[in-house]
Design a protein around this nucleic acid. Structure first.
Lengths: 215, 215
DNA sequence: ATAGTATCCGAGCAATTGCTCACATGGAGG
DNA sequence: CCTCCATGTGAGCAATTGCTCGGATACTAT
């Protein structure tokens, strides 16, 4: 709670042990963040959990904020990578198949580290990392829009930008809330199918057929 | 950043000037919270903005957290009241009409104090108030579900609980994001209509007719 | 070995901040 | 005027915490 100047030039880890230190700091930050929240997570505690000294921590991260930002970056890149991969894999798939695959992928991604994701979404918008999250959201919208444009002939919405916007936020919110409040619903495919229906019925004119092969 | 014991019994405002003090403290908290965020908002600053001394603040609110919680309560009650009102007003309306009215009401409610709402949603889950927000969400789902049950004959989803869950979170997310990122889109009815379509096409079998009267 | 560098350590500084308490002030009733 | 209590005040305590710095230690190269 003391936003000091920290002009200190930071060191790049060169030896293997330094890499290990940085890694253990990041993982400790994750753990402490999940357990204590952003406020409860003080740098001394993080260093302790990581098994290093505060000094070491500040050799690689210029500030607590930067440390947390590094985690956010890691997480965003992971999520974006996953989405991009799925979009490119669905290059030739029908809208129905691609959407269902994508929704399941999102659920899966959220289920990996639900607590961490929750902290990211709920507690970190207040630091500068908010830009990063918003940027991720923008990239997600771009990906979806590109995808929609390929299928534009079949789509009902005329404004694809708005459609991408709605789809991205609706799916993200539904997925996020489901992981936290209905973790049991992840087993059977009902949740995934309903989210897919939400998207597909919005996008397509006419009715939407049930999935061909049941999960 | 010092979560002390605060055993102090708090005083109930009895005279008019005390009421005024409490009010000015609440409004100041709002302002400071919006401007500085939860962390930047220290009690000394809030008291200063309110034009009272810290001592007075702590005579009516046992802790910073309690102070913020009081604001959250106020806000939640306001939102819930608005939703309940719209649901009861739509008692006899068709699903289409009721949904469109409801979506517009949500957009309107969010547009009233967008910055405050944003702080509430983004920065306050970490304090105990999270329970309150979650509780509000649960009540919203209950309201929507009751409404859906009245129209169940026309609905496609079999699991109305899941449907309420998805609708509530999707609409909230879309509305919230739109207020913050697409404030211009609130003028014409395109945004409202698209959110309504998202909901209606998910809920109803078959196609959804455009609104009878434009706007 | 020796030098040079990368890494690590952790006591403690400086700043912040939630909150208290001893006291001042306002107003109503007598 | 005096009493009583509700209300208001603000200097400052106590605790927390982000971060630094002087120096120890591990590793590499020669």
């Amino acid at each position: 709670m003391v936003a000091r100047a920290r002009l200190h030039p930071r060191r790049q880890p060169m030896q293997a042990r330094a890499q290990a230190t940085v890694e253990s700091i990041l993982r400790a930050t994750e753990r402490v963040l999940v357990k204590e929240g952003y406020d409860g997570a003080n740098t001394n505690r993080i260093a302790e959990v990581a098994g290093v000294s505060v000094g070491s921590l500040y050799q690689y991260f210029p500030s607590k904020e930067a440390l947390v930002m590094a985690l956010v970056d890691e997480h965003c890149d992971q999520m974006l990578g996953l989405m991009a991969q799925h979009v490119s894999e669905s290059q030739d798939a029908s809208l129905e198949v691609a959407t269902r695959a994508f929704v399941r992928a999102m659920l899966h991604a959220h289920a990996l580290q639900p607590e961490l994701h929750r902290v990211m979404v709920e507690q970190l918008p207040r630091i500068q990392g908010f830009d990063k999250v918003r940027q991720m959201s923008a990239m997600a919208q771009a990906l979806v829009m590109e995808f929609l444009q390929r299928h534009r002939a079949r789509l009902r919405p005329a404004n694809l930008e708005l459609a991408s916007f709605l789809v991205v936020y609706a799916v993200e919110a539904a997925t996020h809330a489901a992981i936290l409040e209905k973790p049991h619903a992840l087993q059977d495919g009902e949740l995934a199918e309903e989210i897919s229906q939400l998207v597909l019925r919005y996008l397509l004119a006419g009715d939407v057929a049930p999935p061909e092969s049941v999960q």
